[in-house]
Nucleic acid binder design. Structure first.
Lengths: 218, 218
DNA sequence: ATTATAATTTAGATACATCTAAATTTATAT
DNA sequence: ATATAAATTTAGATGTATCTAAATTATAAT
């Protein structure tokens, strides 16, 4: 049986694995979890003994198939609860993260699967992140970051890659949410900012923001 | 901020306070929590330092107003989640206890109150136990144990006082659930068992069982 | 290639929650 | 009233998860 702390480490390693291709470093885990590298070392030893990660001292870690399964299951729970909080309890998408961080550690296979069914087997959470199914496979997605699209391209928002309230509030302010239609009007080669039309309204968006908005081209 | 363990102790002390009038003993807490008296002593010291209980060595404990408030709040969460699990996720009433034991420790005032509203402010959980409101007050109830009723009395089940699956399964078998109509047909002075009619069907019930079924007389 | 710097790990502490075994206090019985 | 039994507490360990400070290993710079 896995503890909350173990699950948080696995989730973090999973998340960082997407960026740090092969192996995830101790320091990046510490930074992400806002803890000290020495604490991370301790925990990596433990996860390794439980065969949840591949760990060679001083050389970073990767998830074993078992660790991967567990991480994906925790992510599944997190995202399903977020859907529930937004769609049934009327939370806003920037309010649900902390609560879901707690709910994701509730242990009951039946609960997760019944919640999934109750929510009609959603494929994406309120931030547009894909929700793995019971077997752990993610829905296929062809989303592209907004900053990579060419002028005149039209598409709709399927995901955002950050979940800080400051970011989500900004999106609310410029009226961007999951499903919003966006058209690229102009690209500024100097600072890579872009001009877009959101539901007809012209808006200027920085590279920083555009990188974190994923679009499905129409 | 209170830990899970602290909350479980407070809940247990609250529960035992109903039976052991003034003060609750170390041993009864240990038995209820399936732990050792020495562990209980340790925790009582801590709860006392946090001013959640009144504790005089060797003389048992009682909840302070603060401890009482916290205990009631945990109970509120437990019972609201049980309602959710049964009414929206189709769990049976004997399946929800362990899951609610976990959910009751989720910390978010907003979550509890929105869940409460989503469930339409229920007054009783699936076992018939009263649910305190946000301010901590319980709905008034005039329920009486089935074994105390006189012959020919009619009433309906409002609560059961045990939640072991063995007990709940037995109730399912004899078709007793919250709201079931029961009429007292005869009382056996020898073993205090009773004959009742449940929706017209005659059933024989032991004292042990009758004591744990609470009735609202009609 | 050697040194300096950065990353990582180990050693030793602390806090929480639990345990066993021993000591202490309270209650009970004669 | 005193001995015995029962209840309770203390002392000392253990396991989890964290920390600081020191040691070690890897990486970068000259």
């Amino acid at each position: 049986m896995s503890t909350k702390a173990e699950e948080n480490y696995l989730k973090t390693i999973f998340k960082l694995s997407e960026k740090e291709k092969n192996s995830v470093s101790t320091n990046s885990i510490a930074e992400e979890l806002e803890t000290k590298p020495s604490s991370v070392s301790d925990m990596l030893k433990k996860l390794s003994e439980k065969e949840l990660i591949n760990y060679v001292k001083y050389q970073g870690v990767s998830l074993t198939p078992l660790g991967h399964r567990l991480a994906v299951h925790v992510i599944r729970k997190h995202r399903l609860w977020e859907v529930f909080l937004v769609s049934h309890l009327n939370f806003k998408w920037d309010e649900v993260h902390d609560i879901a961080e707690q709910l994701e550690h509730i242990k009951s296979k039946a609960l997760v699967n019944r919640l999934d069914a109750f929510l009609n087997f959603p494929s994406y959470d309120p931030h547009g992140d894909p929700i793995p199914n019971e077997k752990g496979s993610f829905p296929k997605s062809t989303a592209i970051p907004l900053n990579l699209l060419k002028v005149k391209t039209k598409g709709k928002v399927v995901t955002v890659e950050r979940d800080e309230p400051s970011f989500l509030n900004y999106l609310d302010k410029i009226q961007v949410s999951i499903g919003t239609h966006i058209e690229i009007v102009d690209v500024n080669d100097f600072d890579h900012s872009i001009d877009v039309k959101i539901d007809g309204t012209p808006i200027h968006i920085s590279l920083e923001v555009a990188q974190n908005i994923l679009i499905c081209v129409l």
